[in-house]
């Protein structure tokens, strides 16, 4: 079309933009949002209520003259140390994983060496096998090697299981980067290490951060393996502790549900921090579409 700019735009709404369509859409979406948020609003509101209040009126807004902030204090005393455990475990796990994935992906993408294809296909094969198959033998290994109740029992199998997909992701990215840039660097005499450190890596920082945050969230939320191998109350991850405590706290009339809900809320603190970081870092929808797979 030629570039005609009329002074008064004639607005012709698409069928979808007419009001009689927009209103039902908005209503449906509003309902969806409300129902999605109900559990969370319940949790937050109830976390500052006393036990009796919860059992009688679960939906009501907490009475403003009876806000039990000490629910949070108690909750913190129960799970505070374990939150730090979980954070530490998840942090180390994700950080080392990202390093391993990036380095290995670079080696497979850029460096030509004998057997690189063969080894890479081994990684792919490993991705096919579900990692539940490894659980029983890893458990026996952890038991026999005396690693029970230590963080290594969580880290080592975790690194091994998750590295394949990370390597895959990074490799695709590295291979998608402009070849000419790398060739120019090589002509100038850059070694593999220098190429990696100065050119390839800086271009993939967003993916690295994304991978780290996703890995952190995944490791933080992980439940099954952590419960199996970390049985010591001081060392266990916060999720395991939540499961344990949920059974006992509610029987204690003195503390009751309020503390329980407060525990849920504060156990989400690290995740809130991660979400805040990722929101700042990844503005817009580029990532959603970029990760079309």
């Amino acid at each position: 079309m030629t570039n005609t700019r009329k002074k008064h735009k004639i607005v012709r709404l698409r069928r979808s933009e007419r009001l009689r369509v927009q209103i039902p859409i908005s209503i449906i979406l509003a309902f969806a949002i409300i129902f999605t948020l109900i559990p969370f609003m319940l949790t937050i509101m109830n976390s500052i209520k006393g036990h009796f209040e919860i059992t009688t009126s679960i939906f009501s807004f907490p009475k403003l003259n009876d806000i039990r902030w000490d629910n949070y204090a108690k909750a913190f005393s129960y799970v505070g140390a374990n939150i730090w455990n979980s954070v530490f475990i998840a942090f180390v796990q994700s950080a080392v994983l990202v390093i391993i994935s990036a380095v290995m992906a670079y080696i497979f993408a850029e460096v030509k060496f004998f057997g690189s294809n063969f080894l890479f296909y081994i990684y792919i094969m490993v991705m096919v096998m579900p990692n539940e198959l490894n659980t029983s033998e890893n458990y026996a290994f952890v038991n026999n090697a005396g690693l029970m109740n230590s963080y290594w029992a969580v880290w080592l199998p975790g690194w091994s299981a998750a590295q394949a997909s990370g390597i895959f992701l990074f490799r695709i990215f590295f291979m998608g980067q402009p070849k000419s840039l790398k060739e120019a660097a090589r002509i100038d005499g850059a070694s593999n290490v220098q190429l990696f450190a100065h050119i390839v890596l800086p271009m993939t920082i967003p993916i690295v951060v994304y991978r780290f945050l996703t890995g952190f969230t995944g490791a933080y939320n992980s439940y099954l393996w952590n419960t199996l191998v970390l049985q010591d109350e001081q060392k266990m991850s916060v999720i395991t502790l939540l499961m344990l405590k949920s059974g006992s706290v509610k029987d204690n009339m003195d503390q009751g549900f309020g503390v329980l809900y407060a525990m849920y809320v504060i156990s989400g603190l690290p995740l809130m921090v991660v979400s805040a970081i990722s929101l700042k870092f990844f503005k817009g929808t580029e990532f959603a579409s970029a990760l079309k797979m």
């Binding site: 559990p39 109830n46 939320n221 439940y223 916060v238 949920s246 329980l260 809900y261 809320v265 979400s275």
Partner: peptide, 14 residues
């Protein structure tokens, strides 16, 4: 923002 298991527990009790 809340760990998955915590959300499950919320459903279970709340």
């Amino acid at each position: 923002l809340i760990p998955t298991i915590a959300a499950m527990l919320m459903w279970r009790y709340g």
